[in-house]
């Protein structure tokens, strides 16, 4: 298949595109979709061709026009979109893209996508009978003061889409409230702090209620901006069962990541559900669970047995690398929007 993959940033804030490409490069022809000519993935030589894309904020017509152009040139059969900013567009118009452009996708329904919004996770958690930290949706300082009386300190001040800050007193909570609302708008979420071990699980589901593959890890070290640097595989049956329940109840389709905290008494709290692969997905591939390949199998209608068994105690280590290429590559990408 000719598969287009987005998310080619590979800096200290890496996107999932490169690990997805590494997982699929042996069996498929891969085309990179980039939003920035400077993204390292544009020059790593992993894609047959790379195209610059219009920003998702420009809307569906711009996206469709660009994809029609790319399909003509590279005959793409499928797309794996990997970025939070573009996913709402791909999810909302997935049928249109599949039917009109004949491009396969493996994405959740819009209803499921919205179900895991941070301000709706409380409801979803109750439906699934999973613990979720007490969360308030606020849009004023008065409300912040009110809920801080209920929660006490420390508490988390979170954006509805991105960013979260721990606040140890009212002053820092107000400061963080403004930081978040200025950058990410309203509502702002204020959440109880649950202490324990932070665990992550990535999985792929088939849209019919079956979890087709999953790997759980614990992040051992992270960068200043919270990105994994080292991690270890774990075998946590409770977490795996939460993933299975989530998938069977929602009929989720495509990749997802569960961010959870396991408290000292063994209870698991669901903190966040990301509707995409994380950038450490190649860890799963390396230990025998090729989740991007499962996504491609689902797109092709190939029914494979669920892959939920993997070695525990495997260490993941991220590292930096360099490459040298011709400056003309960057100029060509900027001027022609393809490389």
């Amino acid at each position: 298949m000719n598969i287009a993959i987005s998310g080619l940033n590979n800096t200290d804030n890496p996107a999932p595109g490169i690990p997805v490409i590494k997982s699929l490069q042996d069996e498929h022809t891969l085309i990179g979709l980039s939003y920035d000519a400077n993204e390292p993935g544009n020059f790593m030589g992993l894609c047959e061709k790379t195209y610059l894309m219009p920003y998702p904020s420009l809307g569906i017509q711009e996206l469709k026009d660009r994809l029609i152009d790319i399909k003509e040139k590279s005959n793409i059969d499928a797309i794996i979109p990997n970025l939070d900013a573009e996913l709402p567009l791909y999810i909302k118009y997935q049928e249109e893209l599949e039917n009109e452009l004949d491009i396969s996708l493996c994405l959740p329904s819009l209803e499921n996508f919205e179900l895991r919004n941070k301000n709706k996770l409380d409801t979803l958690s109750k439906t699934l009978n999973i613990n979720h930290p007490k969360t308030f949706e606020i849009s004023s300082i008065d409300e912040l003061m009110e809920c801080s009386k209920d929660l006490g300190f420390p508490l988390m001040v979170k954006g509805n889409y991105y960013k979260a800050y721990m606040s140890y007193n009212l002053d820092s909570a107000i400061d963080n409230f403004y930081k978040i609302s200025n950058e990410w708008g309203f509502p702002v979420l204020v959440q109880e702090v649950v202490s324990g071990e932070e665990l992550n699980l990535i999985g792929v589901a088939d849209g019919k209620g079956e979890l087709k593959g999953a790997v759980a890890i614990k992040k051992l070290t992270t960068t200043d901006i919270g990105k994994i640097w080292t991690g270890v595989t774990i075998q946590n049956d409770k977490l795996m069962n939460i993933a299975k329940d989530f998938v069977s109840n929602t009929k989720w389709k495509g990749p997802f990541e569960l961010e959870c905290i396991m408290s000292a008494n063994g209870d698991i709290y669901l903190i966040e559900i990301n509707p995409r692969f994380p950038a450490w997905v190649y860890f799963a591939t390396e230990i025998g669970i090729n989740l991007p390949k499962i996504v491609v199998d689902i797109m092709q209608g190939i029914d494979t047995p669920a892959q939920l068994e993997y070695p525990q105690n495997k260490l993941y280590v991220r590292y930096t690398g360099e490459l040298v290429t011709d400056f003309t590559d960057l100029i060509k990408l900027l001027s022609t929007k393809e490389l």
């Binding site: 890890i217 991690g231 270890v232 774990i234 525990q312 105690n313």
Partner: peptide, 16 residues
């Protein structure tokens, strides 16, 4: 707990 020959005890449930 997984106890290895180097006297390291690994807890596979939480990764400690």
């Amino acid at each position: 707990l997984v106890l290895d020959e180097n006297n390291v005890a690994f807890n596979p449930v939480v990764g400690n």
